[in-house]
Design a protein around this nucleic acid. Structure first.
Lengths: 194, 194, 194, 194
DNA sequence: GATGAATGAGTCTTCATTCAT
DNA sequence: TATGAATGAAGACTCATTCAT
């Protein structure tokens, strides 16, 4: 399996650094190769093309991201608590990897429609996690029975995304995780109300 | 004033169509010129360069957008009502101009950081409008006194943006304006609660 | 006759200024029109095309140049004296019109081969003047009978040209006419010797 | 070292041919690449940009030119002899490379001021060589002690340049090297006198 | 005669990808 | 496996000239 070989990860990690430091449009394959310490041609032994690097990067990082959140949530019983843990983890993980935050919030969005559709595929895993929490909350009475899951999920995801993007655009100069409780409060109010 | 000449608008409108139909990266100046019915060189009598077309496009359309929302809001007294009108207008206007929706939600986000910074400048006008409603709502007791304006604004903007983007990505195949009441409900619940 | 109308000269004089101040490749027709105080299209009522402006400029200025030298020479009897007057006039006239000096020594040489051939046509008048002096000098024994007129003329013209060009390239910061006697001395030594 | 690779010379030599045959303004990079038998992009592996090709061309050819003249001169003892060798070599080398003669005498002079300034830098090497011969000649009594080195150098260089340019403009249809003795005679007469 | 808005041809450079070694 | 030299397609912008008014 190619994904287990050390150069595979070397290249992915190099891509995150290069994109974060140079921007999406200045992240040439040759720069990524140099940062990874391999020849340009070597990239193509591990990835089909440049787009494949970016998708793999997103899958890899976001997969890990979701796994971690699922682990954290596992121990909690109530939907409200789970949502808090999710917001906290989301904010904490991104604030701990400044390069990744820049890449996911700003740079990767400059990619073309096709790539963004594939990124959305990856995000679906995250979105179903949110959906699962919402359904659970509705079932056990924490959230309003009338709550429209899809819209609520869009509110939750849209709000977190906007908060993180604003933070990145402000050069990450304030503490993101400490915003989690307030954001959580806003979100569950929306979900609880009729 | 160049902006008042008919060709100025012709070119802007042509740019919206070309970008929506071909995507940001396939929107060559020559295509825009052809769509506008003018020669390539004529573009440069009205715009400094390609980027200037895109910024002008955003300023023009978004300026109009904000003006319309301000007009609609003017007649309302309560913050809650104003928010409803805003969400309704936002959704209605974008669903009435499918090309513009594609351009603002998907294509223009592929622009480089510099252009996006200028786009953000334009958006600040919209964000202050939201802020004004929130402050008003807090003052007259409609919203919780503890509500953090900045976070609430990010929730409102992030939620609307996510809802519209999802709708565009689903090829605008359901009715967007009819989602306004539910979205509004979600948002004000968040704002009302303590 | 177009050449006698005031706008004809206005445009020529404007061209000298614009080329001297902006360089040959930055001397657009629209800039010349603006400097001349006429519309772009008006240029084409007086000149066939841009090249025609430049040729006319050279003919006009250089024609005047040669006429003046011929007048000055007329009063002199000896070839050696005539040569001195020529070098002095040449240097003096160019040092009195700094713009023209820049245009003839530096900028107009950037023109394409075709234009330069036409410029050479104009210069032939000057060269025959030199030839006439040389033949005269040989006939009356001032210069060596073996002197090859063509080469001597190339030495005279090449030397004067190089001296003026060096002066222009050094931003005209020393006094050019005062070099005339030494240059003259060098040239007649070459002509006198066997 | 890039300059030692065969493609570097291939491209330079191709540039000389293309410029000589098509003229400076019709010497597109793609034409040079085709003549060199490489892809357009390959040019940019060896040169920073188009201007860099032209500067390198001049440095390379003129560097070689000066070296050859220095070698030839080395064996001579008297300044007068050295000057003869210089004129002979200058004329001979250019008459042996008709393309190069066209490029240096006509085409490269159409370049913009910036490029010509860099060309002048290269020429300084040649000019100091002339100066060295002149100083030597003055010291050992071959030339007049009053000779102004700068003016004499301008005469020598200006005369040779004018003679060669006239020859090129006349389509190189007479024998240039055979003019060397006469030109040399003219020049040393100027230097010896007074 | 005079205007100036409109035209449209023409070119340097980048960079993802390949393939001989 | 790994290399890296070579490839070649693709697009924004300028400016001399025209022509309807």
């Amino acid at each position: 399996m190619k994904k287990d070989k050390p150069k595979y990860r070397q290249i992915i990690d190099a891509a995150v650094v290069v994109i974060a430091e140079n921007g999406y449009h200045q992240a040439q394959v040759s720069k990524i190769a140099k940062q990874a310490g391999v020849a340009d041609g070597t990239i193509y032994l591990y990835f089909k093309n440049k787009e494949d690097i970016l998708i793999s990067l997103f899958q890899d990082k976001m997969g890990h991201f979701i796994e971690r959140i699922e682990e954290q949530i596992a121990g909690k019983e109530r939907a409200v608590e789970k949502l808090l843990v999710m917001v906290e983890s989301h904010f904490t993980m991104l604030s701990q990897d400044r390069h990744l935050a820049i890449v996911t919030q700003l740079e990767l969005r400059q990619s073309n429609k096709e790539l963004r559709l594939k990124i959305n595929e990856v995000l679906k895993g995250y979105l179903s996690l949110v959906d699962k929490i919402l359904v659970e909350g509705k079932e056990n009475g924490e959230f309003s029975g009338n709550l429209e899951t899809r819209l609520a999920r869009q509110m939750i995801f849209g709000t977190m995304d906007e908060v993180v993007t604003t933070w990145v655009m402000n050069d990450q100069k304030y503490d993101l995780p400490s915003l989690a409780p307030s954001v959580h409060q806003l979100l569950i109010s929306g979900c609880k109300a009729d």
